[in-house]
Amino acid sequence: MADKTFRLEVVSPDAELYSGDATFLVAQTTVGELGILASHAPMLAELAPGGCVKMTEASGKQTAFAVQGGFLSVTGESITVLAESAQFVSEIDVAAEREILSSAEPGSAAYLQAKSRVRAVEAVS
């Protein structure tokens, strides 16, 4: 039976946020939402502004990252999320981000960042 995990790296210019094995990844890209399993065909996709990335670790635990721009690189054995900036869902104050969403100009950098963070929280709620 083929291995059902792949190596996942989530990095931003500031830090490596995650490095480990995962079984499933969902990413919001500029062409839509993608679900990726082990042995997926190689591809490169641009991450959507205001999007998030949700993953299922090999242990079964699910988590998400708020991601503002960047790229998703998929090979047969690994996936790399190269984010312009990213944040773990556990570090997000969703009430504060919802307040920013209601007051910021739609499409602005502040709006897209708040939208990304709210999406990440909702992805694992």
Rank of each mutant, 00 (worst) to 15 (best):
M1I: 15
A2W: 07
A2Q: 10
K4P: 11
K4G: 12
F6V: 14
R7G: 10
R7S: 13
R7I: 09
S12M: 05
P13S: 06
P13F: 06
D14L: 12
A15Y: 11
E16D: 11
D21N: 13
T23E: 12
L25V: 13
L25G: 01
V26H: 08
A27V: 01
Q28P: 03
Q28G: 10
Q28K: 10
Q28M: 05
T29G: 04
T30F: 08
V31T: 15
G32R: 02
G32Q: 05
G32T: 07
E33D: 12
E33I: 01
G35E: 05
I36N: 04
I36G: 03
I36C: 10
L37T: 11
A38E: 13
A38P: 02
S39E: 13
A41K: 15
P42V: 03
P42L: 12
P42Y: 15
M43E: 14
M43H: 06
A45I: 06
A45Q: 07
A45C: 13
A45V: 07
L47N: 01
L47E: 00
L47M: 04
A48R: 01
A48P: 05
P49F: 04
P49E: 06
G51Y: 00
C52I: 14
K54E: 06
K54P: 07
M55C: 07
M55I: 12
M55V: 15
T56I: 06
A58T: 11
A58I: 07
A58M: 09
G60E: 10
G60A: 08
K61Q: 14
Q62E: 15
A64H: 06
A64L: 07
F65Q: 00
F65M: 00
Q68D: 10
G69P: 00
G70M: 00
F71I: 03
F71G: 03
S73L: 12
T75Y: 03
G76A: 09
E77K: 15
E77N: 14
S78R: 14
I79G: 01
I79M: 06
L82N: 06
E84T: 00
E84C: 00
A86S: 08
A86I: 00
Q87A: 06
F88S: 05
F88H: 15
S90P: 07
S90C: 09
S90A: 11
I92Q: 07
D93M: 13
A95R: 12
A95Q: 15
A96M: 08
E97K: 03
E97Y: 01
R98V: 08
E99W: 08
I100Q: 04
L101A: 05
L101Y: 07
S102Q: 09
S103Y: 04
A104C: 11
A104D: 04
P106L: 11
G107A: 02
G107W: 01
G107P: 03
A109G: 09
A109L: 09
A110T: 11
Y111M: 02
L112F: 02
L112G: 01
Q113M: 04
Q113A: 13
A114M: 06
A114C: 02
K115V: 04
K115Q: 14
K115F: 02
S116L: 02
S116M: 00
V118M: 04
V118K: 00
R119S: 10
A120D: 06
E122N: 15
V124N: 03
V124W: 05
V124L: 07
S125F: 10
S125E: 15
